[in-house]
Design a protein around this nucleic acid. Structure first.
Lengths: 135, 135
DNA sequence: CGGAATCCTATAGGATACTG
DNA sequence: CAGTATCCTATAGGATTCCG
């Protein structure tokens, strides 16, 4: 509670670690969906779009392991399993939304930068990019 | 400028895209280091710690491509190349720092959740976890 | 329904050697 | 100094099949 300042080197590793956990292909999308409320497995599967069964399982396990999501099994037939954000998960969702704001706000600038870069690079390695200089 | 609200499905993909670019093994660390000011190639290499030459190159190229970093070549001998955050890069750094704050603030809770999870899982698949029940 | 197990491919990333 | 090129391994992730 009395951290006067944050030690940068240690800091970076944790950020990187969190980011590589959350920065995988699916975690953010799952967390955002769970932000709407508890969801069942196949409910998530349908709404996340493109995720494989296997990856949904792995993603949820990872989130559960980090204490971001709870998994509740109802031993009925057929079985029912609910996933829900924990308090920790909710707080993460909030800061992820911040990053989301940044992403949408700067999306165009990034995409244009990419186009510029790719165009310049293509011009660089072009087979015969300079016309009117016949061999 | 007049986005009344943000379209969630589109939103997610961009966030995920940004996160998987920035959420790789090195980008954040490089951006944080460049937050201190312009740096030369080998300067970054020394300070990032553990990064290979190849990955530093690739990371910097990616950041440059997205318009987050500029690359300035001084045609001297020996050559000198400076990397520096752009305005876009600085604004990203700010929001990444927010996430960093979250990470350090919740680090302990996450690590403990992991230990709990791993312990429970180990108990699950333990060879003979129940003592005092001799066969 | 909610997975687990298996197989397969693509990509990330490390190590090393060479170059302008 | 600041890379590029090549080779190699490990991991992510998709597709498919099987199970309680």
């Amino acid at each position: 509670m009395s951290l006067s300042y944050i030690h940068v080197p240690t800091d970076c590793r944790i950020v990187t670690e969190i980011l590589s956990q959350i920065g995988d292909k699916w975690s953010v999308q799952v967390v955002v969906q769970l932000g709407e409320g508890p969801r069942r497995f196949n409910e998530l599967r349908r709404v996340v779009d493109g995720i494989s069964q296997r990856m949904l399982t792995l993603t949820l396990r990872g989130l559960e392991r980090d204490g971001l999501v709870t998994r509740t099994v109802y031993p009925t037939i057929p079985p029912r399993v609910d996933y829900e954000l924990t308090g920790l998960g909710c707080s993460l969702l909030k800061t992820v939304r911040e990053l989301g704001m940044w992403a949408v706000a700067n999306r165009d600038e990034i995409l244009e930068a990419r186009r510029r870069y790719d165009r310049a690079e293509a011009a660089d390695s072009a087979p015969v990019p300079k016309p009117y200089r016949a061999a």
